[in-house]
Design a protein around this nucleic acid. Sequence first.
DNA 1: GCCAACGTTGGC
DNA 2: GCCAACGTTGGC
Length: 136
Amino acid sequence: MGNHWLVKSEPAKYAFADLQRDGKTVWDGVRNNAAALHLKAMKVGDEVLYYHSQEGLAVVGIAKVVKEAFPDATDPTGRFVAVELAPVRELKSPVALKDMKANPALASLEMIRQGRLSVSPVRPEEWAAILKMSEA
DNA sequence: GCCAACGTTGGC
DNA sequence: GCCAACGTTGGC
């Protein structure tokens, strides 16, 4: 089984519904080294939690990696990479940031520890905990 | 190579 | 709109 990740997007710019409409999208514009390292570690088939920042403040859906890291065409320096994501499904109910923060099982979740990171890894047990919350 | 200044992100 | 966190830049 592949690894799990979490990506953030402002729904006003690109919401999960936009990804569902488009079928897939190039995940570019990441300009942070730590996030870029995670992008480079993504493999086709890895599953990705889709989090809405600024508005919503919740994980709303699951996406998957359909193309591994390649140079980000929007980056003039050529230092950063992009991947391609496709939608898998919408969560039955969104999992709010405040609920994730309140769950001791998620205390070491990377996106909680380092709030500004736009792409972060999710451990298998954290993935399971979040999915369980989405079924509630 | 250090560190202060600055910019960006994102929660509140 | 504010502010904290943190990465990056640039002067020395």
